[in-house]
Design a protein around this nucleic acid. Structure first.
Length: 258
DNA sequence: ATGACAGTTTTAAACTGA
C-alpha cells in the first residue's frame, strides 16, 4: 500500500504532469495540495479515467486539497479542521480508504513573520494539534500527509542560517511540529532515513533544483498502527525535473499489507 | 533587502507562494 502526498501548485495546469506521475508510479492513495481551482473545476473525469476515485475541497484561486484512491472511492470523514467555523480556507480533508484513515493538509505558509498571516498559521497549527491528538488514538492506521510548510530541523534546509526568521523555520512552528512527534506521530521519511539530506521542495528561482537548494516541508506522519507497517519511504525527485512541473516533489511511503 | 519564477484571476496587474 503506497500512500503519497503531492503539492501540485495548480491542478489544472499540472494535470499532464500529475497523470504522467500517477501512470508511472501507481500510488494507492494520494493527497494533493494547492489545487488552485474552484470546486466545480477539479478535473474529476481525467483522474477517474486514470483509475482513481477522488474527493476534493476546492477554492477559487488558492489552497484546495484532494484525496485520490486507486480503484476505489475514498469515504470522506471530514473536510476542514474543527475549532473555527469562520476559517473558510480549503486546507484539510480526511477519508477512509482500504482500512486506513488518511488526512491531507495544506498548512498555511505564514509569511511574513511577524504579522496576521503568521498568527493564522499558529492558530491553524494549534487546531491541527488538537485534532491529531484525538486521531492518534485510533486503533486503525492513520496517516496525516501534506504540505506542513515547516522544516522540522536544520538538517531539512539547505542553508538554515538564512531561514531563521522565516515563517517556515521559525522556532514557534518547529516547536509546534515537535509537539506532534511528542504525541507519538512518526515522521516517516526522517524515521527511515535519519541521516540523509532529504528535500521535497525547490523554488523556481535561481536554479534551485540543479543546485540542490531545497527544503523538506512535505511530510507523512504515522500513528503507531501505521508506523508498525511502515516499510519504505522516498521522494520522487525525478518529477521535479520534468517540464511544467510543480515546485514540490511527490513524497510517498509504503505500508506492509495488514 | 530585493527579486528571481509560476499559477491564478476582474485577462492585466496584482496577489500568493516558500
Amino acid at each position: 500500500m503506497r500512500i503519497a502526498t503531492y503539492n501540485v501548485n495548480g491542478v489544472r495546469g499540472r494535470l499532464p504532469v500529475l497523470l504522467r506521475w500517477l501512470d508511472q508510479t501507481q500510488p494507492d492513495i494520494v493527497c494533493l495540495q494547492e489545487l488552485k481551482a474552484p470546486q466545480d473545476a477539479f478535473p474529476e473525469d481525467a483522474i477517474r479515467a486514470a483509475g482513481y476515485g477522488a474527493i476534493w475541497h476546492g477554492q477559487s484561486r488558492w489552497n484546495g486539497v484532494a484525496i485520490l484512491a486507486k480503484g476505489a472511492d475514498p469515504i470522506e470523514t471530514r473536510r476542514g479542521l474543527p475549532g473555527d467555523p469562520d476559517d473558510l480556507h480549503s486546507r484539510y480533508i480526511e477519508a477512509a480508504v482500504g482500512g486506513i484513515l488518511v488526512g491531507g493538509l495544506y498548512l498555511p505558509n505564514g509569511n511574513p513573520r511577524p504579522g496576521p498571516k503568521f498568527d493564522y498559521k499558529l492558530r491553524w497549527f494549534s487546531r491541527l494539534t488538537d485534532h491529531m491528538r484525538k486521531l492518534y488514538k485510533t486503533r486503525a492506521p492513520v496517516v496525516i500527509a501534506g504540505d506542513y510548510n515547516v522544516m522540522p530541523t536544520p538538517k531539512d534546509v539547505y542553508k538554515p542560517e538564512r531561514w531563521l526568521d522565516d515563517a517556515l523555520f521559525a522556532p514557534e512552528v518547529r516547536t509546534a511540529y515537535a509537539g506532534l512527534l511528542e504525541q507519538g506521530w512518526v515522521d516517516a521519511l526522517r524515521h527511515l532515513h535519519p541521516d540523509e539530506t532529504i528535500y521535497t521542495f525547490y523554488d523556481y528561482f535561481r536554479n534551485a533544483f540543479a543546485r540542490d537548494a531545497g527544503l523538506r516541508i512535505d511530510h507523512l506522519l504515522c500513528n503507531r498502527p501505521a508506523a508498525k507497517r511502515l516499510r519504505t519511504a522516498d521522494v520522487d525527485r525525478f518529477v521535479r525535473g520534468w517540464e511544467k512541473t510543480s515546485d514540490h516533489c511527490p513524497v510517498w511511503i509504503e505500508l506492509a499489507p495488514s
